[in-house]
């Protein structure tokens, strides 16, 4: 009986230690640019180094690190650039198939309803702004052929009565064009 209790205690201790140790990861391999950051000081990661999951890690573009969680017998290869706590880097995972499927069908449903939700929940002001944005984009250039309702880039033109929309929009364009011509700095892509 005594042996049994001792064995159980021993197993418990081992498990407890494992749980603690599970927070550490052993570096199997790392590119030279990968480093840990502590109090703003960057230290390059070396092979066989032990990194705690609370440590901040910086992986630049094209850098990589292979970590081993010996307790759970799992290895992690991180090759996406990041600057975050190891815990967060490892837990960042892709959406599951179920989540993606839900998103997909939600999107299809929304489209089938003709973006009904968006139309119902938006305010009159938002709808007018969106309409003006669309009209605005028609007068710009051939490469800017439309706007999304979510677009936050375009500056909305102040609400005007329907009959004045086109005229005012054209005037805005002419004014902007004049500004561009006055200034020689051109921007092209």
């Amino acid at each position: 009986m005594k042996r049994l209790i001792l064995t159980l205690l021993f197993i418990f201790c081992i498990s407890f230690c494992n749980m603690i140790l599970a927070q550490d990861y052993h570096v199997c391999e790392a590119s030279s640019e990968v480093c840990t950051i502590a109090k703003g000081v960057k230290t390059p990661v070396t092979k066989k180094q032990v990194i705690n999951e609370k440590e901040r890690l910086e992986i630049p573009a094209y850098g990589y690190i292979i970590l081993l969680d010996s307790i759970n017998r799992k290895s992690y290869k991180i090759d996406t650039p990041c600057r975050d706590m190891l815990k967060n880097i490892i837990s960042t995972d892709k959406a599951t198939v179920e989540e993606l499927t839900l998103k997909y069908f939600r999107y299809i449903w929304k489209k089938m309803c003709g973006n009904y939700d968006m139309a119902v929940t938006s305010t009159v002001g938002q709808r007018v702004t969106a309409a003006f944005r669309d009209i605005d984009s028609l007068f710009v250039d051939s490469t800017a052929r439309g706007t999304a309702l979510t677009d936050t880039v375009c500056r909305p033109i102040a609400c005007k009565r329907d009959s004045t929309v086109q005229q005012d929009t054209v005037q805005v364009k002419i004014h902007r064009k004049a500004e561009c011509e006055k200034d020689e700095c051109k921007k092209d892509e």
Binding site: A144, R145, G146, A148, V153, C154, K187
Partner: peptide, 10 residues
């Protein structure tokens, strides 16, 4: 003049 049409809109 530097607006572009993208999958996310303008």
């Amino acid at each position: 003049a530097d607006m572009h049409f993208t999958p996310l809109g303008k």
